[in-house]
Amino acid sequence: MENVLSIFFSLSLFYVIITSRVKAYVSVLQVQGIILSILLIIPFIHNFSIYGIILPLTLLIVKVIAIPRYIKKIIRDLDIKRRIEPTIQQMILLPIVILTIIIIFMASSLLAKNTVVNVIPFASGFSSIVIGIYIIMFRKKLIIHVCGFLIMENGIFLFSTSVASELPMMIELGVLLDVFVVVFLMGITLNRISSTFKGFEVSHLGRLKD
């Protein structure tokens, strides 16, 4: 089950690379959030406890409802155009991404010979981290950078579930809260940027140089 979900997670990465609409990024974030919450609920299906349900529920609220809604609101308020404006062609990025993911999967299956890791979630999580960085590097719009950062965060979450050893719930909740506040602050900053610079692309940020 975990493996199936992780595969879906990786597929969402391919979609995010080929799509050229801003809204699609938000939907991908929602899908990833749902996958992660299901992953967290699975261990509690057979022995249900209220305590165990808190974290998946918070994750669902933060990653599927709160953050995507907030990003949609920013897109609406700032009247951001639909297209994402990449710096390189989609069709050049796609082979690079496929190659990266293949390398990551092969490398992790090699590593799994020495260490006990859940290969598919591990590799999907790691791919998501790398794809998140690609998105930040190869897209012009700042709102897409925020989405890239969140995709990276989701990857880290998946990655940490594959590495066993759970973090205590208080800390997991702290991590979620931190991520939420980061996105919130980034949103406020984006608002300011769009009103100060009359735009929201990386090219507007070039004042600070040595």
């Binding site: 981290i129 960085i133 930040i136 700042l142 950078h145 950062f149 990276m152 965060e153 880290i156 990655f159 940490s160 590495v163 991590v175 980061v182 602050l185 980034m186 900053t189 300011r192 940027i193 100060t196 940020l205 004042r207 600070l208």
Partner: peptide
């Protein structure tokens, strides 16, 4: 300038700290 500095700091450091989290894992 301050706005740009804040954005860059917030974004770079958040990504950096996310990396540190991978390290912890």
């Amino acid at each position: 300038e301050a706005l740009e500095a804040m954005w860059k700091y917030l974004f770079l450091v958040s990504v950096g700290i996310a990396f540190a989290f991978v390290g912890i894992m």
